[in-house]
Write a protein that binds this DNA or RNA. Structure first.
Lengths: 250, 250
DNA sequence: CTTGACACTGACCGACCGGTCGGTCATAAT
DNA sequence: ATTATGACCGACCGGTCGGTCAGTGTCAAG
């Protein structure tokens, strides 16, 4: 006997509209369904209403997992620990993820999406292309200097992705996400080019500059911490940016 | 009861002078002592002749360990595996290292020293400063493109070092080793400066350039593999080198 | 030959891990 | 009230790991 599990289409909307359910229900992870919308009106006999927003909970668990990962690394983080951090039982995690690897992949993807979204919204708030580029770089560095675990998270992500290159089912979206970070910078550069602030030879060069910039930023942070802070981070970054802005982009 | 273990001072020299001992002895890790040099002549009653060169064996085990690490990563490598690769029993490893962490640190240090030594000897064979710098970069990249495990090893090293920053007793030497890689490039640049090929403002700038270059090379390799080869590696590196040689160093 | 320090070994240990599964509970439908 | 089901849980399982230790082999001194 095969059951067809189809998500009730309005579950999302109704869950969002009533985010602060009672404490006891919330503790159980159950989102109450708004009265007046009897599910029977919206589903046929094969559909079953879900009591929780599974997508959201999956996201919550992945987010909690990423928090633990960034402190201890992926290998050193047990599923028990993740369960504790997420406030659920270990068995529950396996309701949402097929394996630890799948959960890690999901956690990384969400983490990347947050970063990309943050970078995008930041760059949208600034008009001047040069200032926008500088702000992007400075904010990226600030994130790493603010708390050291950020760089440990990054390095853990790189390690997991690299050691799972064959496992494309989960890690393809992650690899695609890298392209997004480049695209943000390419857009900044191209915008500056159109405004006459930057001078480059076509979008191809903008992409090269963007890829190199992101790679450099990650690399310099890595070396900064790995070398035990044996140089001044911002001095190095400024040196890079100086030549980028005065040579490549002029 | 505390035993004072003092290495027989000439053990090193004699071990080196007779590197190819008989197979059976070698299998047991025992280096025969050259006849005609009765140890009694060289030690007083408190000193005891060692039958093996402990420093060398420690190095051998660490080297074998690094070989396994680079294939499987640190966490996925058990002490049994290392013991098998090194051709010794697991218990023997604990004669030479107090813990797995200590062995990892030793293995990383030896690995770094080999890299540094390789880079140094490479750069000594070339006269022209610009060609020397280009060759250094190209060889570094060739190492990473030749076999993918090289980048996995690097990333594992970064991860272990970063997550053991507090464990300074073992990882301080590793952090110092980073300085050496910079120094090699600084020397190339300064040599080019003295020969009138490069034009920089003092050694301080040479150091900035060197640190940024090494960081960039690591970063671009990382992104290349992590993004699943979504750009051409050498094109990016050439782009960086072009601006470095034509803007920063001219 | 005996002795004793040294080097080495792998069986063994307890802790822990990823993953499973039988069972509980709250709610919805009847 | 009863039944059905989605959601959740943690005890449990097979297996692995880092680390230990009692015992063996080796060699040189006595």
């Amino acid at each position: 006997m095969i059951h067809k599990h189809v998500l009730f289409p309005l579950a999302d909307i109704r869950a969002q509209s009533n985010p602060s359910s009672s404490l006891s229900l919330d503790k159980l992870g159950i989102l109450s369904i708004v009265e007046g919308f009897p599910p029977s009106l919206f589903r046929d006999f094969t559909m079953v209403a879900k009591l929780v927003n599974k997508d959201q909970k999956r996201r919550d668990i992945a987010q909690a997992a990423m928090g633990v990962f960034s402190e201890r690394g992926f290998d050193a983080t047990s599923m028990n620990l993740v369960a504790g951090a997420a406030g659920v039982g270990k068995g529950t995690i396996y309701e949402y993820f097929g394996s630890k690897d799948e959960m890690i992949a999901a956690a990384i993807l969400i983490w990347l999406e947050d970063i990309i979204e943050g970078a995008r919204s930041l760059s949208q708030r600034i008009e001047d292309p040069e200032l926008r580029l500088r702000t992007f770089v400075n904010e990226s560095m600030a994130e790493f200097t603010r708390d050291q675990s950020a760089i440990q998270t990054s390095i853990s992500v790189f390690q997991v992705v690299l050691s799972n290159l064959d496992n494309s089912q989960w890690f393809d979206p992650i690899q695609s996400a890298f392209k997004e970070t480049w695209r943000i910078i390419v857009q900044i550069i191209m915008d500056g080019h159109e405004k006459g602030v930057f001078n480059i030879h076509g979008q191809g060069e903008a992409e090269k500059i963007a890829i190199n910039l992101v790679a450099y930023l990650d690399g310099i942070c890595l070396h900064y911490y790995a070398s035990g802070g044996r140089f001044d981070l911002m001095t190095q970054v400024d040196h890079y940016m100086e030549y980028l802005l005065e040579s490549s982009l002029k």
